[in-house]
Write a protein that binds this DNA or RNA. Structure first.
Length: 450
RNA sequence: CGGGCCAUAGCGCAGUUAGGUUAGCGCGUUCGUCUGGGGGGCGAAAGGUCGCGAGUUCAAAUCUCGCUGGCCCGACCA
C-alpha cells in the first residue's frame, strides 16, 4: 500500500477528549473516529488491526475445536423474557421497538439466542460435546463510556458457549478454553494472566478473567510474580486430552492471581513469599465461566442421556473483547513517540520511507523492495509522499509498524538502505536485496508468512 | 445515576469575568518559492449560521432560560 493512495488521517495534536494513551494514539494514528459517546468508526488502519486480532481469535477457536456461527445483533425480547433477564438486565440493555411495536433489543450477549438454537436442534447426548461461538458486535448502554475502544458502548466480542452432557465434561470445556485463550493472547504478543474472578450476573461456580497488566487498567490485581514467568511457547496441545489441558490449567492457576473482588490479603501473605507479591492495574481482555444448568433448566435445553432420560445440559460461556484488545495492546506496547505494534497484530508488517520520491533511483529501489516483499506475501506500507523527512519519520513512529526501511539517496550512493526495528530503534545498513531476504526470514520464523 | 465542566475554522486554543466597528492565534489545507535524513523557511490565499432555540438589550460569541451533544471524578461495567 502507498501512503499517497491510502486513507491515513493522522493528527499532529492530541484531541482534547482523549485521556488515556491508547485512546490518544488511536485517534492520532487515524485508527478510529468517534461517532457518538462510546461508538466508533474503524478507519482503514484501525480496521486492519481489528481484523488481525479477530483472525487470531478465530484460528485459535477453531484449533480448539469450537464451531463458528453468526448470530444477529438485534434479538427478540421474547427469549429474554423466557430467561428472566429482560427485566434483570436493566438500563444497560438498549431496547428497541420495530414498526409493529414488537420489542427488540441490541444484544449485549447471546446466552438466550444460543440456547434457543441448541434446544431446537440438539436432542441426544451423542451430539455432545458442542461448542459454538461467534465474533459479533455487541451493545451495552454504559452510563459512562470512556477510554476510547477500551470501554465503548458498541464493541466487537468473541463469545462462545459450550454444551456438555455432565459437569466433568463441561469442566474440561472450561479448561480447554483457558488453554486456548492463553494461546490466543500469547500469539498477539500479550501477557494476559488468568485471575480467579467473580462470576457476577452470569452466575456459576467457576470463572477466570484474563488481565493484561497496564497502569491504566480498570482493576486492581494481586498476583505471585511466578505466574508472569509462565508461557506456552510453541507447545502443541491436544485439546481433546482432558489430562493435558487440566495440567496446563493447574500450572497457570496454582500461583496466586486474583482481582480485587476475590482478593484475600491473608491468603496472599500465607501463600506467596513477600518478594514475589505483586500488585498492579490490569485490563480485562477476556473471561470464562462454567455455570452448569443455570440457563438450560429454565429454557428447557435438554438432551436424552445414555439411559434415555432427559437431562439439562451443562454449559459455560467465554468471551474475548476483540475491539478492546486493540486498545489493550497499545496500552501495553507504546512509547512517547507512538505505538509499537507486536508483529502479529501490526496493521502492516513493514513501513518503507522513500526520502526522495522525485529521485528515480531512490524510487526504483523502493519499488524493488516492495515487489520483493509482496512476492512473499508481506504487504509493506510505502510512504511515497512529498512530505518532509521529519514528518515521515514522525508518522511512521506514531503508527508503530514493527520494521522500517529507510531509502534515501545518501545511502543508495553507498549501496545500502536502513532497516530499523521500532521497538528499540536498532538500525542496520543492508543492501536492497538483503533487506528483503532478512525480513522474509524474520517473518517466516515468526510464522507470519510462508 | 450523584458531583463538576465544556461546546468559537479540519485539530488545539484565545476572546465571555465587565455586551460595543470587520471574531483572532498556532497547527493543518491550497497556490508560489527556497529547501530536502527527525513534524523546515519566506510570501499569498481559502476556510466561521461562535452547538441549537427562545429571551433581555439600541447592540449578544459574551447576559438569562430551555434543549442537544460531549468530557472528567465517583458508583457501575467485557
Amino acid at each position: 500500500m502507498r501512503v499517497s493512495r491510502y486513507f491515513l488521517p493522522v493528527l499532529k495534536e492530541t484531541p482534547s477528549d482523549a485521556q488515556i494513551v491508547s485512546h490518544r494514539l488511536m485517534l492520532r494514528a487515524g485508527m478510529i473516529r468517534q461517532a457518538a459517546a462510546g461508538i466508533y468508526s474503524w478507519m482503514p488502519l484501525g480496521l486492519r488491526v481489528l481484523q488481525r486480532i479477530e483472525k487470531i481469535v478465530q484460528e485459535e477457536q477453531q484449533r480448539a475445536g469450537h464451531i463458528p456461527l453468526l448470530m444477529p445483533t438485534l434479538q427478540p425480547a421474547a427469549l429474554w423474557r423466557e430467561s428472566g433477564r429482560y427485566d434483570d438486565y436493566g438500563e444497560e440493555m438498549l431496547r428497541i421497538k420495530d414498526r409493529h411495536g414488537r420489542d427488540l433489543l441490541y444484544g449485549p450477549t447471546n446466552e438466550e439466542l444460543i440456547t434457543d438454537i441448541f434446544r431446537s436442534h440438539v436432542r441426544s447426548y451423542r451430539d455432545l460435546p458442542l461448542t459454538l461461538y461467534h465474533v459479533q458486535w455487541k451493545f451495552r448502554d454504559e452510563i459512562r463510556p470512556r477510554f476510547g475502544v477500551m470501554r465503548g458502548r458498541e464493541f466487537l466480542m468473541k463469545d462462545g458457549y459450550n454444551f456438555d452432557v455432565d459437569r466433568e465434561s463441561a469442566l474440561h470445556a472450561y479448561n480447554r478454553h483457558m488453554v486456548s485463550y492463553l494461546r490466543t493472547y500469547e500469539r498477539m504478543g500479550l501477557k494476559a494472566i488468568p485471575m480467579r474472578a467473580d462470576t457476577g450476573p452470569i452466575g456459576g461456580t467457576h470463572s477466570h478473567e484474563f488481565l493484561v497488566l497496564a497502569d491504566t487498567g480498570e482493576s486492581e490485581v494481586f498476583f505471585d510474580s511466578a505466574i508472569s514467568e509462565l508461557n506456552l511457547g510453541g507447545r502443541s496441545v491436544d485439546f481433546n486430552n482432558w489430562q493435558e489441558c487440566a495440567a496446563i490449567v493447574d500450572e497457570w492457576t496454582q500461583p496466586y492471581a486474583r482481582t480485587e473482588e476475590t482478593h484475600d490479603p491473608r491468603t496472599f501473605e500465607l501463600e506467596v513469599p513477600e518478594e514475589r507479591r505483586r500488585s498492579s492495574r490490569g485490563i480485562e481482555v477476556g473471561q470464562i465461566f462454567y455455570f452448569g444448568t443455570k440457563y438450560s433448566e429454565p429454557m428447557g435445553a435438554t438432551v436424552a442421556g445414555t439411559d434415555g432420560t432427559q437431562v439439562p445440559v451443562h454449559m459455560g460461556s467465554h468471551g474475548i473483547g476483540v475491539s478492546r484488545l486493540a486498545g489493550a495492546v497499545i496500552e501495553a506496547c507504546h512509547d512517547d513517540r507512538g505505538i509499537i505494534w507486536p508483529e502479529a497484530v501490526a496493521p502492516f508488517p513493514v513501513g518503507i520511507i522513500n526520502l526522495a520520491p522525485k529521485d528515480d533511483k531512490t524510487s526504483d529501489i523502493c519499488e524493488r523492495i516492495v515487489r520483493g516483499l509482496e512476492s512473499s506475501g508481506i504487504e509493506p506500507l510505502l510512504d511515497d509522499t512529498d512530505e518532509r523527512a521529519g514528518a515521515k519519520f514522525a508518522t511512521m513512529d506514531l503508527i508503530g509498524l514493527p520494521w522500517r526501511i529507510t531509502v534515501g539517496p545518501r545511502g543508495i550512493a553507498d549501496g545500502y538502505v536502513e532497516l530499523t526495528r521500532r521497538s528499540d530503534g536498532e538500525t542496520e545498513k543492508l543492501g536492497p536485496e538483503q533487506v528483503v531476504e532478512k525480513l522474509i526470514d524474520i517473518f517466516r520464523a515468526a510464522g507470519l508468512t510462508n
